[in-house]
Write a protein that binds this DNA or RNA. Structure first.
Length: 948
RNA sequence: GCUCGAGUGGCGGAAUUGGUAGACGCGCUGGAUUCAAAAUCCAGUUCUUUCGGGAGUGUGGGUUCGAUUCCCACCUCGAGUACCA
C-alpha cells in the first residue's frame, strides 16, 4: 500500500522531470510561441544559425547559442515585443551523402531521422521556438525558392555606375542600341568591345556567350579547387591549410566548367556594409581581410618586339622608377608568346614543374626562390629602358593581373628574387640603405632617382605617377580586391538541383512557374564511370520543353527534350537567404510576402559561430544585397547585431599505460616513466577524477585484464581540455543532463560557465551548484507541506534584494552578460532565504525575472501562484530606485592606496566631516604610527585614501 | 611573417566611467543532522607569515592620491590569414 504522507511530500519536492515535460507539452499544445506577422507591439527577430542535422546528435556545446538567444527572446516577450524566434535545418550536406555512398540509404531518409532526433533533443531543452515556421533547406518547398533566386541572379548583371544589380534585359537593350562601349559593368576580364551593329549580327549562341560574361551567376571555365577524395570542387573558404575543411583531403587546381557567383562585384559594398552593423570587430576584420581591398594602379608595360603588353597591378606606383625586372606567374597567358628560342626549354620545364606541384607543396616551400628568365624585355613606360621579363611562382595567377613590376628596393620578395638571380637593385629612396633588405615603410618614404617625383613622399608621388600614366595612356588608378568569385557547382548528389538545361551547350533557365525541379532518384551516389557527377546516374533527368516536365534521358533529342544540369548547389545556397523565409515560411507564391518582409525587416539578434565568417556570413550578405537591388526586400544588411558564441570544449580524461605493458599508472605516479596516454570515456570518471576500474575493464576487451598502479586505492585520470568530439570520448549529451538535473539546470549552467563569446571547458561536476540553486529557489515557495507564499507586506530588506536583482539582471541581459545574471539570481535567492521571505510581492516578480533562464520552473511556480496564463508574456518587473537608497556607506579607508579597514559613515557627511571622522579613528592613528598624513583624498560615497 | 584576441586562487570565472581584487559556483577542510549514507544546513578556503603583518591580477617600466582597468616594451597562449604585388 502506498504511503499517503510520503507521496504528499514528494509532490512538494522540486520534481523537474515532471514539471518540464508538463510545460513543454503545454507550450506545444497552446502554440505559446507562435509569432504573428501583424501586431501593435514592436517587432523583435532573434535568430540562431540553423544546424546541420548530423547523425551524432547534439552535444552540450551545440545549444549554447540557442540558450542565449532563447533567453533574450523570452526577455523581449516580457518587455512587450512581438518576437520572431524560429528554428530550422540546413539539411543538405556531405555527411548524409557519404553515409548514403557507404550504405545505399537515401540521404533524405537519414536526414529525416537525424532531424527527428535533433527535434527531440531541442524540445527537451525548452526553447521558445515558433515551430510553425520551421524550414529545411532540403525540402522542395524551400529549395524551390533557392532555385528561384538562382534564376534571378542569372537574369541580372552588375552596373558599376549605378552600383547595383539590374535585370539582364536592360543590358540587352543597351547592347542593341549602343553595344557595350559605354557599359561599366562587373564582367569577365576577357570581355571584348562590340558595337550595336556587331551585337545585332551575332548569332544567338554568341550573344548568350557574351551575356554569360555579365550575369551575376555564370558558367565559365575556372581554375577550381578539386578534391579527388570527396569527388567535388570546393570554395576557398572550404579549404583550410591547403586541405579540405571536411576530412582534411588534398586539394589540387583543375580547370573545369563551373557555375560561379559574381560576388566580387559586391566587394566594396560588402566592405562598406560592415560599418553599419553591430558585429564583433574580430569578425568584421576577418571579412575585411578576406575581401582584401588594396588601392594602387594598373600599369601597362609594352613588350619589346611583340604586339603585346604586360599589365601589372601595384600598390606602390611611387616606386615605378625602381623597377629592374618583371615577374609573370608561370600560368600567365603571355609566357608562351614572348619566350625566346634560347629560353624556351627552361621556361617550359619550369611551367611544367610548377603545374605539377600541388597547392600544398607550393605553400610548404615559400622560402625556396625559383624562377626563369623568358628572354623577353619590356619597356619602362617613363624611361623606355629595357626591363627583363621573368617568370616565378611567387607570383600568383589568381591575384591582380598575374604579373608584377618588381621593385627590389621596396619589396622584400622582389629583393629576395633579385638577390637570388643577381638582378640589379636600384635604390630610389632618399637616405635608406637597401643593400641588405627592402625598404617598405610608406610613411617614411622620400623618393629619389625618380625623374619628376624626386623628393616627394609616398602619397604625392603615387598621385603624380598615376596622373602621368593616364596622360601617356599606360595606366590608371585602380582598386583591387582579393575576394574571388565563388564557385557554385558541386559534383554531389545531396544538394539543390540547378533549374538549368542545356541547348547546344548553352545553359537555359527553366521558367520559374515550373519550380521546384526536384532531385531525381539515383541508384548510386558516386560519380558515373565517365566521371560525371552523381546526377549522371539518374535515368530520368532530361527537360521536356513542351510538357515542362522532367522526363527519361533516352528521350533527349536536342530539339524539344534536353539534358539537365548534373551539378548541384553548394551547402551555402540555402543558408544564404533562409532568414528571410522564416518571416513567411509557408508562402507558396513568393519566397516571402512583401507584408511579412516589411514587417519583420531584418534580424535584430543573430547568434552563431565565427567559423562562418568567410562562408555563410559573407555569401548571405551578398544575396541580401542582390535581393535588395531588385527591390524584393527592404534592407541590404540582414543582421543588425551578431554575436559569436564561444565553443564549449570537452574535458578529456586520460589513463597512462606503461610502454609495452598492460599496466596503467595513476596520473600522479607516472613520474619520468615512458607512458602512453589513452583517452577514456569521461562517463567512467567521477567528479574527483577517479576512474571506475570495473567499467574501464569492461570497456574494451584488451583492458579486461589490465593491471593498475593506484594512489590511495584510487586510479586518478589525467585531464586535458580539447575540442568535444566522439573520438576523444569527452562528449557530454544534453539528454543525460536533462534527465539527471533538468533542462532549467542545463540552461542556467551553460550560461553560468562564462561569457557567451568566450571558449570554455565543460565540466559536469560543477553543475550541482546551479541545480542546488534551483532547489533553493523552489523552497522559497514551498515548505514540506504546501505552497508557503504569503500576502505579508515585504520588508525593506526583501524589497532591496528584489530591486537590486531586477536592476542587475536587466542590465546583464541587455549586455548579453548571462553568466553574471545567474550569479545575481544565486545571491538573490541566498538573501531571500536568509531573510525567510515568503512574500508574494517579492516572489511573484522573481518568477518573471527568472523565467527567461529557467522557463519550466517559472511556469510551474507561476501557475501554483494562481495564474491561469503562461508566464511567457507576463510584464517584466519594473526597477524602483527608491528601494536601494542607503543612508550610510561602509567606507574603505586606504593608506597609500592599500585598503586597511572600513568605517561606516553617514552619506550626509561633507568631505571635511568624513576626513575628520576617519582621521580621528583609532585605527587611523595606529596605521599612521605618529606620522602626519601628507594628503587625504576623500571621494564621498566611494573611498578615503590617506597618503603619507 | 602579418592581423586580431586573451593571460586574475586548485578549477570555471566576478570586479560600473581608474576607487574595498578574488563576487557567484565547483572542489577541498572542519562542524551540525543521521544507526549510517544521501540530501540539507553552518563555518573556513589567494599566497606567505615570527600571527604584528607582508606580498599579490603573465614580466619589466610609466602615469596617478589610488591601476586587473590607462600608456610603453617584452613573454606566453589562442584565433584568422598565408608569397595579395
Amino acid at each position: 500500500m502506498p504511503c499517503i504522507r510520503n507521496t504528499y511530500t514528494e509532490v512538494m519536492k522540486y520534481n523537474f522531470n515532471e514539471i518540464e515535460a508538463k510545460w513543454q507539452k503545454y507550450w506545444a499544445d497552446n502554440r505559446t510561441f507562435k509569432a504573428a506577422n501583424h501586431s501593435d507591439k514592436p517587432k523583435f527577430y532573434a535568430l540562431d544559425m540553423f544546424p546541420y542535422p548530423s547523425g551524432a546528435g547534439l552535444h552540450v556545446g551545440h545549444p549554447l547559442g540557442y540558450i542565449a538567444s532563447d533567453i533574450y527572446a523570452r526577455y523581449k516577450r516580457h518587455k512587450g515585443f512581438n518576437v520572431l524566434h524560429p528554428m530550422g535545418y540546413d539539411s543538405f550536406g556531405l555527411p548524409a551523402e557519404q553515409y548514403a555512398i557507404q550504405t545505399g540509404q537515401h540521404p533524405a531518409l537519414t536526414t529525416e531521422a537525424n532531424i527527428s532526433r535533433y527535434r527531440e533533443q531541442l524540445d527537451k531543452i525548452g526553447f521558445s521556438f515558433d515551430w510553425t515556421r520551421e524550414v529545411r533547406t532540403s525540402d522542395p518547398s524551400f529549395y524551390k525558392w533557392t532555385q528561384w533566386i538562382f534564376i534571378q541572379l542569372f537574369n541580372a548583371w552588375y552596373d558599376l555606375d549605378a552600383d547595383k544589380s539590374r535585370p539582364v534585359q536592360e543590358l540587352i537593350n543597351i547592347f542593341e542600341s549602343e553595344g557595350n562601349v559605354n557599359v561599366n559593368a562587373a564582367c569577365d576580364d576577357d570581355t571584348q568591345e562590340f558595337s550595336a551593329d556587331q551585337w545585332n549580327k551575332f548569332s544567338n549562341k554568341e550573344q548568350q556567350k557574351i551575356l554569360l560574361k555579365y550575369r551575376l551567376t555564370y558558367l565559365a571555365d575556372t581554375e577550381v579547387n578539386w578534391c579527388p577524395a570527396l569527388g567535388t570542387v570546393l570554395a576557398n573558404d572550404e579549404i583550410v591549410n591547403g586541405v579540405s575543411e571536411r576530412g582534411g583531403h588534398p586539394v589540387v587546381r583543375k580547370k573545369m566548367t563551373q557555375w560561379s557567383m559574381r560576388i566580387s562585384a559586391f566587394a566594396e559594398r560588402l566592405l562598406e556594409g560592415l560599418e553599419r552593423v553591430d558585429w564583433p570587430e574580430a569578425l568584421k576584420d576577418i571579412q575585411r581581410n578576406w575581401i582584401g581591398k588594396s588601392v594602387g594602379a594598373q600599369v601597362s608595360f609594352k613588350v619589346k618586339g611583340h604586339d603585346a603588353q604586360i599589365d601589372v597591378f601595384t600598390t606602390r606606383p611611387d616606386t615605378i622608377f625602381g623597377v629592374s625586372f618583371m615577374t609573370l606567374a608561370p600560368e600567365h597567358e603571355l609566357v608562351a608568346r614572348i619566350t625566346t628560342e634560347e629560353q624556351k626549354k627552361a621556361v617550359e620545364d619550369y611551367v611544367e614543374a610548377t603545374s605539377r606541384r600541388s597547392e600544398r607543396e607550393r605553400m610548404a616551400d615559400v622560402k625556396n626562390i625559383s624562377g626563369v628568365f623568358t628572354g623577353a624585355y619590356a619597356e619602362h613606360p617613363f624611361t623606355g629602358k629595357d626591363v627583363p621579363v621573368w617568370i616565378g611562382d611567387y607570383v600568383l595567377a589568381g591575384y591582380g593581373t598575374g604579373a608584377v613590376m618588381a621593385v627590389p628596393c621596396g619589396d622584400q620578395r622582389d629583393h629576395d628574387f633579385a638577390n637570388h638571380f643577381g638582378l640589379p637593385i636600384p635604390n630610389i629612396f632618399e637616405g635608406v640603405d637597401v643593400s641588405v633588405e627592402a625598404f617598405a615603410d610608406k610613411e617614411n618614404t622620400v623618393i629619389a632617382n625618380s625623374d619628376f617625383i624626386n623628393g616627394m613622399g609616398y602619397k604625392k608621388a603615387t598621385q603624380c605617377v598615376i596622373e602621368e600614366l593616364e596622360k601617356i595612356g599606360q595606366g590608371y588608378g585602380k582598386i583591387n580586391y582579393r575576394l574571388r568569385d565563388a564557385v557554385f557547382s558541386r559534383q554531389r548528389y545531396w544538394g539543390e538541383p540547378f533549374p538549368v538545361y542545356y541547348v547546344d551547350g548553352m545553359p537555359q533557365m527553366i521558367a520559374t512557374e515550373h519550380l521546384p525541379i526536384e532531385l531525381p532518384e539515383v541508384e548510386k551516389y558516386l560519380p558515373t564511370e565517365t566521371g560525371e557527377p552523381p546526377l549522371g546516374n539518374a535515368s530520368q533527368w532530361a527537360w521536356d520543353t513542351e510538357t515542362n516536365t522532367v522526363v527519361e534521358n533516352d528521350k533527349i533529342d536536342h530539339k524539344k527534350i534536353f539534358p539537365l544540369e548534373l551539378n548541384t548547389m553548394p551547402g551555402w545556397a540555402g543558408s544564404s537567404w533562409y532568414f528571410n523565409r522564416y518571416m513567411d515560411a509557408g508562402n507558396t507564391k513568393e519566397f516571402a510576402s512583401k507584408e511579412a518582409l516589411n514587417y519583420w525587416q531584418d534580424v535584430d539578434l543573430y547568434i552563431g559561430g565565427s567559423e562562418h565568417a568567410t562562408g555563410h556570413l559573407l555569401y548571405s550578405r551578398f544575396w541580401q544585397k542582390f535581393l535588395y537591388d531588385l527591390g524584393l526586400i527592404s534592407v541590404d544588411e540582414y543582421a543588425r547585431k551578431l554575436i559569436n558564441q564561444g565553443m564549449i570544449l570537452g574535458t578529456s580524461a586520460f589513463v597512462y599505460r606503461l610502454e609495452n605493458s598492460n599496466t596503467f599508472v595513476s596520473a600522479n605516479l607516472k613520474g619520468d616513466r615512458e607512458v602512453q596516454p589513452i583517452h577514456v570515456d569521461v562517463n567512467m570518471v567521477n567528479a574527483s577524477d577517479e576512474l571506475n576500474l570495473e567499467a574501464f575493464k569492461a570497456w574494451r576487451p584488451e583492458f579486461a585484464d589490465a593491471k593498475f598502479e593506484l594512489e590511495e586505492g584510487k586510479y586518478i585520470v589525467g585531464r586535458e581540455v580539447e575540442k568535444m568530439s566522439k573520438s576523444k570520448y569527452n562528449v557530454v549529451s544534453p539528454d543525460d543532463i536533462c534527465s539527471d538535473y533538468g533542462a532549467d539546470t542545463l540552461r542556467m549552467y551553460e550560461m553560468f560557465l562564462g561569457p557567451l563569446e568566450q571558449a570554455k571547458p565543460w565540466n559536469t561536476a560543477g553543475i550541482t551548484g546551479v541545480h542546488n540553486f534551483l532547489k533553493k529557489l523552489w523552497k522559497l515557495y514551498f515548505d514540506k507541506e504546501a505552497l508557503c507564499v504569503t500576502d505579508n507586506e515585504p520588508t525593506a530588506d526583501n524589497l532591496k534584494t528584489l530591486h537590486k536583482t531586477i536592476k542587475k539582471v536587466e542590465e546583464d541581459i541587455e549586455n548579453f552578460s548571462f553568466n553574471t545574471s545567474v550569479s545575481t539570481f544565486m545571491i538573490c535567492v541566498n538573501e531571500l532565504s536568509a531573510q525567510k521571505c515568503h512574500s508574494r510581492a517579492i516572489l511573484e516578480p522573481l518568477v518573471v525575472l527568472i523565467a527567461p533562464y529557467a522557463p519550466h520552473i517559472a511556469e510551474e511556480l507561476w501557475s501554483q501562484l494562481g495564474h491561469q496564463e503562461s508566464v511567457a508574456y507576463a510584464a517584466f518587473p519594473v526597477f524602483e530606485e527608491k528601494h536601494l537608497v542607503e543612508s550610510t556607506k561602509e567606507y574603505p579607508v586606504s593608506f597609500n592606496g592599500k585598503m586597511r579597514f572600513t568605517k561606516e559613515l553617514s552619506l550626509d557627511l561633507s568631505k571635511d566631516q568624513i576626513e575628520e571622522a576617519v582621521l580621528s579613528d583609532e585605527r587611523t592613528i595606529k596605521q599612521l604610527d605618529g606620522r602626519t598624513p601628507k594628503k587625504v583624498i576623500v571621494v564621498p560615497g566611494k573611498i578615503v585614501n590617506i597618503v603619507g
